[in-house]
Amino acid sequence: MINKKVANVQVALSDIADNMTIMLGGFGLCGIPENSIAELVRKNVKGLTCISNNAGVDDFGLGLLLQKRQINKMISSYVGENAEFERQMLSGELDVELTPQGTLAEKCRAAQMGIPAFYTPAGYGTEVAEGKEVRVFKGKPHILEHAFDADFAIVKAWKGDEAGNLIFKGTARNFNACMAGAAKITIAEVEELVPAGELDPNEIHVPGIFVKRIFQGEKYEKRIEQRTVRTK
């Protein structure tokens, strides 16, 4: 067993520096690497390019990094729900590359799987296609999109073991499973870290080979963005 366990978040993120490109898992606030985001705030690294489907809310998730102006560029599919984000974007302080969600996921997956680029129909005929190569397959135009090239991928899982194997819960799998192994170094934070051998190999969602470092997060708030309920 190759042991991927590191002591804590400080050790895991120790070599993240200014101006790096970082992928962060999560959809909305669901499945975001809360402990790592808090550590990025504490380290106060600046000039980051962040690849993440959303940008958090004003006071949680990536919104915390935006508040401290640590992000230069965001690559996301949807950035509503964050007033500070909108302000920085409209004033030009923040560079934003909006990418269709399926393309964003596939750009992660392509990086993970060693595919340099791919064609997709998403965005053809729109602003997204500007400057991109177009090719027709089976009579339908597609645009060429490239795999991401990031320094770090930070993902969050429900359970993990010391070998770096990951299991997700519910819809918190989202981008986390696509980003593991999609950057030079992948860091996984998990709610529960167990010794190798305790997770059933049949139930692993992401094999440990894609993960370089793993640690158990100190605490999880797991904030709910839209609490919708029905009455009994």
Partner: peptide
Amino acid sequence: PFPFEGEEDADLINAGKQTI
């Protein structure tokens, strides 16, 4: 459908970020 009150799970949402 939406969960009953008290049964919401932060790890179970739809694309509108609502608990389901």
